[in-house]
């Protein structure tokens, strides 16, 4: 959050939030006959939150741990010097690290704050929620115990994440965090006693939770409103070629903001409506970026960076997924 002592809200954040709020509050009036669905909206909204909050809490605890126990020296020694190697390492670490898309944002922010290069942070951000045992298992189950879709999801997702992180490494030199100052890490000499540090870890986690959760709440509310008021069929208006339906499925993934552990079943339910290429796009794109996630990212990174990242993820995933249809 941009709460440094001097400046408070950054203008683009305000505009964005106003747009979101305006949309949320006025959209029901366009569909007046559906006003009775406000209790439904509330239930869906709360269920997204109740589902996501445990993962956010785990995320902020890890972020608190990193803040207190991991020094910049550690990180420097872990990250390879060459860009390509660093991106590859970060994508692999992300793939091994079981996280979900809301929990990973505070972790990435803390890592970058501690001196992890931006491109490595992005690699970790993209593969963390996409590739992990639970997601693989649920994809495998959802597609009728067929490993093909699960493998494609991991493979295409991993290569796309590599490509996106590499492009980021050429486009951005600075860390793109909103806050200017980097936290000064305590040197080993004046390290406080363990009890103090554990306490510090929890206090950091609390502050981090307060930073993150308001964006999660706004994101969940918008996603729930869309589910309640906008019929899925309205997406079909775009057209029905593979190229169109892939865009439709990516749009759906973005706006539904589902947890990567649960989206495979939803994706699978579209098998008769759309070709598998489009469903693959849904599965790869959703965990990388979605509405809820993007609002959280906007709270951490500069708006311009988030926008570029969004465009990159969208175009690269679209391109790579479309290429698989020629295989």
């Amino acid at each position: 959050m941009p709460y440094s002592k001097k400046s408070s809200f950054n203008l683009s954040t305000i505009i964005f939030l106003l747009l979101v709020l305006g949309f949320v509050f006025f959209s029901p009036f366009f569909v007046t006959e559906k006003m009775t669905s406000l209790p439904q909206l509330n239930t869906i909204f709360l269920s997204i939150l109740i589902e996501a909050i445990p993962f956010v809490l785990i995320g902020v605890l890890i972020a608190g741990f990193i803040q207190i126990f991991i020094t910049e020296e550690h990180i420097k020694s872990w990250i390879p010097k060459s860009k390509v190697k660093a991106v590859l390492t970060s994508c692999i670490v992300g793939a091994l690290f079981p996280a979900c898309e809301c929990g990973i944002v505070p972790i990435v922010r803390k890592l970058i704050d501690k001196g992890v290069p931006l491109y490595a942070g992005v690699g970790f951000l993209l593969t963390g929620p996409l590739i992990n045992p639970i997601v693989i298992l649920s994809t495998y189950m959802a597609f009728g115990n067929d490993m093909r879709m699960a493998l494609l999801r991991m493979g295409v997702g991993f290569i796309a994440a590599l490509a996106i992180a590499l492009v980021i490494s050429f486009l951005f030199k600075s860390n793109q965090l909103k806050q200017k100052e980097r936290s000064v890490s305590n040197s080993i000499a004046k390290r406080p006693p363990l009890y103090q540090r554990v306490k510090g870890m929890f206090q950091h986690s609390i502050d981090e939770f307060f930073d993150m959760s308001k964006y999660l709440i706004i994101g969940a509310f918008v996603a729930a409103s869309l589910q309640t008021f906008v019929p899925a069929q309205s997406l079909l208006a775009f057209g029905d070629s593979v190229y169109h339906s892939t865009i439709v499925m990516m749009g759906l993934a973005f706006f539904l903001s589902l947890c990567s552990e649960a989206d495979a079943f939803i994706g699978a339910s579209f098998r008769n409506l759309f070709p598998s290429t489009s469903i693959l796009a849904f599965l790869v794109y959703g965990p990388m970026i979605d509405l809820k996630n993007m609002i959280m990212l906007l709270s951490v990174f500069k708006a311009r960076f988030v926008f570029v990242l969004f465009l990159l993820i969208t175009s690269i995933v679209y391109l790579f997924v479309t290429l698989t249809s020629f295989l």
Partner: peptide, 14 residues
């Protein structure tokens, strides 16, 4: 006092 040392400005909500 939570271990950041002096001059700690995370810019986040303390």
């Amino acid at each position: 006092h939570h271990g950041c040392g002096p001059g700690c400005h995370h810019g986040h909500d303390h």
